[in-house]
């Protein structure tokens, strides 16, 4: 058997422990799928796989137990998924019958968002689709997720780029009856950014994380939402070398700024990636270049708006498995 494994991987299949057997990864950007595609996935698993799927942590499906020689047939079978999910949102797929054109940039995952969740400050799935259009197909190894609020149910803090929806709370003191529900709740579940003064409420913008809890708790609509804003956390990762939670890079920026930063990040990767390696994860590139270089390049042409703020420095922290300093 002569298989170009690099092409196979790029085609969203993988080299498995069982020689000659592969598994297909199906992207579900935003984790939001029309159930009609279950039929296609079922057919692939039953006709070419072992009748099972693995639900991936990135909200995709992995169909295992596929003989490598069946790849062309599988690719023809999943054409409706590529067409209905990818080309439908504007992704350019060179040949619908040849399967996924790239697999480096992983599925863009998202929380369920404001179509269901009362806490979500945005339609996370829709934002994920916009990002999918922007960055796919792409070979660079990048993980992106979108979450509707700082509860971060999608674990945006474990991504290279984690996008967190923010609401700017606007206060109409006339409508406030001083019930204190927002103040108590902000202290209890968020950051204690609210206080009462002269029977009305004051918001400390430096402490506010735009979670929108005050708006949800207000009985009189004294707190309402102004435009949608975003916080970007970056370079979170698992892995063998230095697992770490993502740190805040930008906050109170608009959607256009988020999109521009993501697009710029691919240029940054292109500028700095170590091409002697089979692949290099963006987080490790930032480790090499340093945060200031990353910041300067991804903010090129980005309008931060009136409220937008950029982290001056970031201590990514995390931990290393080097244990000599502990155990001697």
């Amino acid at each position: 058997m002569d298989i170009n494994t690099k092409q196979l991987r790029k085609n969203a299949f993988r080299v498995t422990k069982n020689r000659g057997m592969t598994a297909l990864r199906i992207r579900v950007p935003g984790g939001n799928l029309e159930v009609k595609y279950f039929d296609v996935i079922k057919k692939v698993a039953e006709n070419f796989g072992n009748g099972r799927v693995h639900i991936t942590t990135r909200q995709g499906f992995e169909v295992p137990g596929i003989p490598m020689e069946k790849i062309p047939e599988v690719n023809r079978m999943i054409a409706p998924i590529l067409d209905g999910i990818e080309t439908a949102v504007g992704v350019e797929i060179p040949d619908l019958n040849s399967g996924y054109p790239a697999a480096g940039t992983r599925n863009v995952s998202a929380c369920i968002g404001n179509s269901v969740c009362p806490f979500a400050n945005l339609n996370s799935g829709e934002v994920a689709l916009k990002i999918e259009k922007l960055i796919y197909p792409n070979d660079y190894h990048v993980k992106i997720a979108v979450t509707g609020c700082p509860n971060d149910c999608i674990k945006a803090h474990m991504q290279d780029i984690g996008i967190i929806g923010m609401a700017l709370p606007v206060y109409d003191s006339y409508r406030c009856i001083g019930c204190g529900a927002c103040v108590k709740n902000c202290r209890r579940v968020a950051t204690g950014a609210l206080s009462i003064s002269n029977y009305k409420v004051k918001r400390d913008h430096r402490r506010c994380i735009g979670c929108g809890e005050c708006i949800l708790k207000c009985p009189t609509s004294a707190w309402t939402r102004e435009d949608k804003y975003y916080r970007l956390v970056i370079m979170g990762r698992t892995g063998k070398k230095n697992p770490r939670i993502a740190q805040t890079f930008l906050e109170w920026v608009a959607e256009e700024a988020v999109m521009k930063v993501i697009a710029n990040m691919y240029q940054y990767i292109d500028n700095h990636i170590d091409r002697s390696l089979p692949k290099e994860h963006v987080g490790y590139i930032v480790d090499r270049t340093g945060y200031p270089v990353f910041r300067q390049e991804v903010l090129l042409g980005v309008d931060l708006g009136q409220l937008g703020r950029v982290a001056e420095s970031i201590n990514f922290g995390g931990y290393f498995y080097e244990r000599t300093n502990i155990f001697g």
């Binding site: 404001n114 945005l122 339609n123 929806g165 207000c218 309402t224 939402r225």
Partner: peptide, 8 residues
């Protein structure tokens, strides 16, 4: 528009 407690 947009001024409901839940977003959108």
């Amino acid at each position: 528009p947009g001024k409901g407690a839940f977003s959108d």
